[in-house]
Amino acid sequence: MYNPQLNRHGELIHLLSTEGLPARILRQILDKAAGYVAAGEAGEKKHADLAGKTVFNLFFENSTRTRTTFEIAQKRLSADVHSLNIQASSTAKGETLLDTIHNLEAMGADMFVVRHAESGAPFLIAKHVKPGVAVVNAGDGRHAHPTQALLDMYTIRHFKGDFQNLTVAIVGDILHSRVARSQIHALTTLGCPEVRVIGPKTLLPRDVEQLGVRVFHDLQQGLQGVDVVIALRLQNERMNGALLPSANEFNQFYGLSREKLALAKPDAIVMHPGPMNRGVEIDSAVADGQQSVILDQVTFGIAVRMAVMSMLSEARA
């Protein structure tokens, strides 16, 4: 099948989803990110990879953390950075998504980093940009959040060495989670032998096992013997209603507490893509506990985004 993310040399030209990317590319991104981490530790923060390149961050949906880390990564790579909060500007005036893109292309854009509420929006953009213009998906609907998944892979590899013998559990609202989908594809591609998803039936998408995961509805069973626990954010608007009766009941049955975490391996690490709802999907004792690597994720996120954008700028025409 045609892969819109790779050129005919097999190089990354857009990062839209972790699905369909070969393990070779995923490892290349992680290795390159490790280089930036090492350089940073040696005091070398600034690089010239994107010098002279114009990057637009197009956030059609709110985000603070992802946008900030992208901006930091771009500035460390010496790019000319422009961040647009689109809800407040053009689409409100009736301009279509593609009109916006073509206008910014006319201003000399080399790269778009896009967050959009609709699944697939970055694919539409990638299909319509000029050759040589790269698109990075910074989160689209429920579909994908590939840079988040890659920084999670980086974090797992950093603490666990490799993926070959790991059991990873993803807990909570899988249905609405672009992060979970991207993590699942990345983990299975990188050779993780067992990926579990744990949640009530209302928060698991249909046929999710077809993605190559084991399904658990009981958190305590699902956490048995796992090496990595990833808690997902539960959106406020989903806490009460027909999906779930209450945040409290969710916390009692699916929230990560110290007692439940004890069922995982003693050296298991705990991750969360942020922002956290303390006391809902994760208790403070776990979020701030010794097994938590949540702040490491944030740190590595910058290096991973640098690696992705640098690789995109290197792809041959």
């Binding site: 429920r142 579909h143 672009r178 989908r181 249909r206 999710v208």
Partner: peptide, 14 residues
């Protein structure tokens, strides 16, 4: 609402 919608993150019509 099936395997494809799950993979693509598209809200499903069951």
């Amino acid at each position: 609402d099936g395997q494809v919608a799950t993979r693509l993150g598209l809200p499903g019509i069951p």
